[in-house]
Design a protein around this nucleic acid. Sequence first.
DNA 1: GTAGGGTTAG
Length: 578
Amino acid sequence: MASLIHFESLLQKCNSLIQIKQFQAHLITTGKFQSHPSRTKLIELCALSPAASNLSFAAEIFRQVNAPKTNDWNAILRGLAKSPNPTNAITWFRTISRSPQKIDALTCSFALKACARALALSEGTQIHSQILRFGFDADVLLVTTLLDVYAKSGDLDAAKQVFDEMSIRDIASWNVMISGLAQGSWPNEAIDLFNRMKEEGWRPDEVTVLGALSACSQLGAVRQGEIVHRYIVDEKLDMNGIVCNAVIDMYGKCGFVDKAYLVFNKMSCKKTLITWNTMIMAFAMNGDGYKALDLLDQMVLEGMLPDDVSYLSALCACNHAGLVEEGVRLLDTMIESGVKPNIKHYGTVVDLLGRAGRLQEAYDIINSMPMMPDIVFWQTLLGASKTYGNVEMAEIASKKLVEMGSNASGDFVLLSNVYAAQQRWHDVGRVRETMKNSDVRKVPGFSYTEIDGKMHKFVNADQSHPNSKEIYMKLDEIRFKIKAYGYDAETNLVLHDIGDEDKENVLNFHSEKLAVAYSLISTRDGTPIHVIKNLRICVDCHAVLKIISKIYSREIIVRDRARFHRFKEGECSCRDYW
DNA sequence: GTAGGGTTAG
């Protein structure tokens, strides 16, 4: 026993391959290699040490074992599961299953971990049935890992079923389920579960609130977010920096950048690089370009070194605020500071130049940057070409997109919009034909709005809402009023070659308009309206919301896929630059 | 070889 302890303490210190080899030699010469505990420890240590070469060395040791025990197999499995290539662990798990050695709950646990990382749903399902067969299903830790596999690989129905059927749950099971729902784009369900958890007498911890906050951020559900924030303060979970960062992020993504900044300034724990980046991003999304740039300067003054994400956030801020010169300069500053721009930095600058109508410069950057442009660059250039009616550049970009095999419907919609704006219906038809043949579909647009703490979702031309009739009556009223105000719908934006009146209807029923109409009838006069949309806002909705903000005296805040728009008194905070 | 294994912000 004494010699065993001696071994282990020495093993802790053996971090280089040479030392490991010395110990292996030692075990062999003293005849202890084939005896289980020490040798298993040795394999474990090798398999889990960060250097990849050690994992293959662990496998080498494993092969020298005459009769490997379950734990020897597990040690290798665990190492493979956390390696960059977790699918190897799944293969190894199959090998174990075929070996005479019995698997245990840990074998399943490591294999599931690999599935979660590899997003291997069907393999996870197979291990699930093994778990049932071996009767490991009362093991909370194991079932929680299983839950995580289902959630991460996108089968939230299966995850929910496993969760509901668990006879014992602990806080981590709740956490996995809540963050799984939040990350799997079921944020409403995540919030419901968070509330149910509290009702059932659980005390959410820092991990729980991170999941709940993420759900609120996605939904722009600030009332719910405030409830979570209050809970965090009450439970003193704001001693945790990660939690503070998530609160800042939540307020930023809900359009309450001032509240985000308040939390940022008042947080008692140390600000990390991520804290600064989150705040810069919050300013960026909200169109506060100069505040974002000031914060970048301030972090440097406070001794924090900006990284690539800091610069990306600041570049986004320039982009959304139309600070073209500042953005172009920032790219240089970044390079001078020794932070290497990646494809996203170039992408943002290309977008920035494109939006400013400087298409040639944008094109030059694409051609001169040190990496291959991906599809997004050409989509950006195409989008900008559409805005500025540059058919030539649009065709260059489209040609590239076709070459690169893009089948994103947005590309086709944009190109056809370029043609439609010029009444080139024949070309529009050609693009539509291509769309049909390559089976591309437009991503359906939807919008959320929070009324009295409850989220309401609208898709385009939605008629499923209980108050649908009133909503459409309100839309009629709006249409009448804005017409009287002198508004003419921008029908050339609609893809199809259909009559003007129909085109106007298609636009009129965009989900954000439905959400705004519903907010108008269900909130008090004068209160701001908040809408979250999954796509970029279209030109027509943008123009209409400006007028609505004026004639109904309402501030309307819309978060689209990229940023916030604040409509007030007939103007938008983006100054029509987005 | 008793235990070991699960959740987390830009």
